[in-house]
Design a protein around this nucleic acid. Structure first.
Lengths: 186, 186
DNA sequence: CCTGAAGACTTCAACACTAAAGTTCGAAGC
DNA sequence: GCTTCGAACTTTAGTGTTGAAGTCTTCAGG
C-alpha cells in the first residue's frame, strides 16, 4: 500500500490566486493586477450563471428560456418581438430561435402567430404564464444579487458599477459587434 | 409608402440604460444600482468572450480548445492532466472531454496515452505546438486586456480587482460548486 | 485464483446550436 | 398582372454537448 501522502498528489482545482501565480510563472510579462480583474470577472460570471441556472430550474425552465422572457419583457407592452429580432438580441442564429420558440410555445410561455398585416413576419408574444415565470425568476434573482453584493457599501457599489459600465462602453466601441455568437464556456 | 417614422418603430437593441429602465418599469422593487452592476458584468463578459473568440480563431482554434490549453498550462510542468480532471476544471461532462481531446489530439495540440503505472488512467499532455499556441493566444489576450483597462488608474484597477475578488469569494462560499455545467449564454 | 465492486474513461442516443439552402410573402419594375 | 428581388422565417445537415449505459482496470475478499 503506497503512502497516502505522495502517491497521487490530487491535482486540486486551482484557486484564483494559484491560477494567477501559474500564469506569471509560465508567461513572463504579465500584469497580475490586470489578470486578477479579468480572471475574477470570468469566474464570477460563470458562478453566477450556474446560480441562475439552479434558480430557473426550480421554476421548470432553463437559462436559455429565461433569456427569451427577459428580452420580451424588456421590449415592453405588448411584449411582442419577431424571431429574427429575438435572435439578434440573444446572439443566436434565427434557426436556433425557431426551435427555442417551438419549445417555449409548447410549454405555454409564449405564443407564436403570423402577423396578418404582413404575412412574412411572425409575432412571438409573452403569455400571462410567461410573464409570471419571469416575475418569479426576477424575484429570486434579485434576492441572490442583493445577497451577493451585501458586503459592499453604497459607495463601493457605485464605483464598481461605474467601472464596469465604463469597460463595457469601451469594449462596445472597440469591438463593433459584427454579430457575436457565444455559447462558449468561461 | 408609409411614413418612415411611425410604421415600423424598429425595436432597436436596448442599451444597458434602456434595459435597466425597462426592468424598473416592469418590476417595482428593483435596486437599479445592483442591476447595473450585474447587467454590466454579464454584457462585459459576453463581449470579452466574443473578442477572445476572434483572437483564438486567428490561431485556428476555438475558445473551447483554448480552455483546455489554459488548464494544462496552469497545472504546470509536465503539463499533464487526466480527462476527468480536465472535465471537472472546465465544467464539462467527461463524455464531452473525450471528444474534445480527440479533436485536439488530431490537431497536434495535445497527446493522449494510457498511464502505464495505472492502466485505467489516461494522460493528456500538452505538446510543444500546444504550448506555443497558448503563448500566442496569451500575447494577444494580454494586449486586448491592457487596452480594455487603459483608462483605469492603478488605484481604480486595484479597487476593481478587490471588489470582484471579494464577490467571487462570496459566491464560491455561498454556492459550494456541486458541479456546475455552463455552456449557456449571457 | 475467482468473484464482486468501484473507478476512469468511452460509447450511444437525444438534444441544441450553427451554417447554408429552401420557402413564402411583399414590393418594385416592366 | 407577371416577374424579379429581397426580407423573414423554416428546414436540413453537421458539430458539440449531456446523461446514461458500457468497457476495461484495479483492488479487496472468499
Amino acid at each position: 500500500m503506497p503512502e497516502p501522502s505522495d502517491a497521487a498528489p490530487a491535482p486540486a482545482e486551482p484557486s484564483l490566486e494559484e491560477q494567477i501565480a501559474a500564469y506569471q510563472r509560465e508567461f513572463q510579462d504579465l500584469d497580475p493586477q490586470v489578470e486578477q480583474i479579468v480572471s475574477a470577472l470570468q469566474r464570477l460570471n460563470r458562478r453566477m450563471n450556474v446560480a441562475y441556472g439552479r434558480q430557473t430550474a426550480t421554476l421548470g425552465m432553463s437559462n436559455a428560456e429565461w433569456e427569451v422572457l427577459k428580452a420580451l419583457v424588456v421590449s415592453g407592452a405588448p411584449y411582442q418581438l419577431g424571431p429574427g429580432e429575438l435572435a439578434k438580441r440573444l446572439g443566436l442564429t434565427p434557426a436556433a430561435m425557431t426551435h427555442r420558440i417551438d419549445r417555449m410555445a409548447s410549454e405555454g410561455l409564449v405564443t407564436r402567430e403570423r402577423d396578418e398585416t404582413n404575412r412574412v413576419r411572425v409575432i412571438v408574444e409573452l403569455t400571462h404564464e410567461g410573464r409570471e415565470k419571469w416575475l418569479e425568476a426576477m424575484r429570486m434573482a434579485t434576492v441572490f444579487e442583493e445577497e451577493l453584493l451585501q458586503d459592499l457599501s453604497g459607495r463601493e457599489r457605485q464605483l464598481l458599477g461605474e467601472a464596469l459600465t465604463h469597460l463595457l462602453r469601451r469594449v462596445e466601441d472597440t469591438q463593433p459587434d459584427a454579430e457575436g455568437r457565444l455559447n462558449d464556456l468561461n
